[in-house]
Amino acid sequence: MGKQPERYKLVEPGTIFYNPMRILLGSIAFLDEGVVPGITSPDYVVFKTKPGFLHPRWFYYWLRSDAGASFIKTLARGAVRERMLFRRLAAAEIDVPPYDVQCAFARCIPAAERAWAAAEAQLMVANALRAAYVRTLFDSEDMRRWPSGQIGQVAKVQSGYAFKSEWFAAEGIRLLRNANVFQGYVAWDEEVRLPSERRSAFTLYELSAGDIVLSLDRPVVSSGLKVARLEDSDVPALLLQRVGRFRIHGLLEPDYLYAFLNSTAFLSRITGHDQSLGVPHVSPSQVEAVELPLPPPSEQKRMADVLGRHTIKADCVCEAVENELAAINALPAALLRRAFSGAL
């Protein structure tokens, strides 16, 4: 809490509150009935709806819907960062269904929220199962009988090239940034590209399907380590600075290395490293200095195959739960449509 706790705002059940500077990013919340009251930052907007006219649970979900997001964009103003002041929200007009329909929507939502929470718990269990398989492998007595060596003895970490931002273009070859690397996958929601005519000058940074890449800035997040293997759909692409690509020698199986990188043994050895401009940073040399068990390549392959069969089961559970979550997340929007059509 800051130096002036009296400035913090009370949040009671039935209250909607949002960060006016981050409202476009979805920084909005609702404290439902039965939840213990709390406080929020003095920078937040805190308000209640008019009883008998606008149900707070309906309005909160409407603001989180596509229609609500479009509405918020029309009210946001700002030269550097857009924000939505409450006076603009209070003066705006929207179409709302009858209050009894809003109440019917509000009665349906808690069941969806409970289903969502149950599915989230299942997903956590499935993810924990995958991590448990990896931990069991590398913490086993069988693994300890093998000699160990540094990663740098069997693989080198190539850091990406510092492409100049003025080279970036709307068309061309994609550049793999740390913002694209997540736990176990690469996402291209945020793209930067290099013009195709410059590509030939950077063949040493060409990526291939199957490459193992690691984010070197803020490599550890709440969901785990930002390490992934590239798919066919991720290439062609070039390696940008602050992302490392493993160049593997013949004595190391890629699947085995990837499993080790996802182990708690590796994670514990790279946490708490250097700060670069306040951001946790790990260097290629620090990664290469981490020791790992080095059984013969044939044994590495056998272990990776066994682990792969186990993790496929966990992956199937995760996929099923994620599909269930997607269906549950779509339910509020479907209920809103029914509310406006009079079918609720």
Results as ranks from 00 to 15, higher is better:
V243W: 00
A121K: 15
R7F: 09
R218G: 10
N178G: 08
A132I: 11
Y185G: 02
F53W: 09
R269W: 04
D43Q: 13
A304H: 06
L85H: 05
W62M: 02
I173H: 08
E141A: 15
S165A: 13
A289E: 08
M21S: 12
M124Y: 10
V154S: 08
P20L: 02
G250R: 15
L10W: 11
L123H: 06
S298G: 06
E206T: 08
D255I: 09
S208N: 14
K301Q: 15
L335P: 00
A128H: 13
M21I: 11
S285N: 12
L252T: 06
P195S: 14
T311L: 04
K73W: 03
V125S: 11
F202G: 06
E190K: 15
Q241L: 10
Q153Y: 11
R22L: 01
E291K: 13
S140N: 13
F182H: 15
A121G: 10
R135A: 13
V46K: 04
L214A: 05
P297N: 07
R338P: 02
H249W: 07
W146E: 01
G250F: 01
G78E: 02
T74K: 14
Y60E: 07
P295T: 12
R245D: 05
L240H: 11
W146S: 02
N180L: 04
I212N: 02
G26N: 07
P296C: 05
F17I: 07
T271S: 14
A128E: 14
L24G: 02
R177Q: 07
L123V: 04
V221F: 11
F47E: 04
A155D: 07
F340A: 05
A169D: 04
F105A: 01
S200L: 04
T264A: 12
V35D: 13
V80D: 06
V45E: 13
N180R: 04
V321S: 05
D234R: 06
R309L: 09
H249L: 14
G184L: 03
I173G: 07
Q158H: 13
P20H: 03
A259D: 03
A79T: 15
Y8L: 09
F266L: 07
R81Q: 09
V11C: 08
P147T: 14
L129Q: 08
A118T: 12
L261Q: 05
L129D: 06
R199D: 10
P284H: 11
A69M: 14
P147I: 14
V290R: 10
P297L: 12
Q4E: 09
A333F: 00
L63T: 00
I28R: 00
S27W: 00
S140R: 12
E191C: 13
F53Y: 12
A326S: 13
I248R: 01
L294A: 05
V186C: 11
Q4H: 15
A259L: 13
R81C: 04
Q241N: 12
I94V: 12
D66S: 14
R242F: 00
L75G: 00
G52V: 09
F71G: 03
P295E: 05
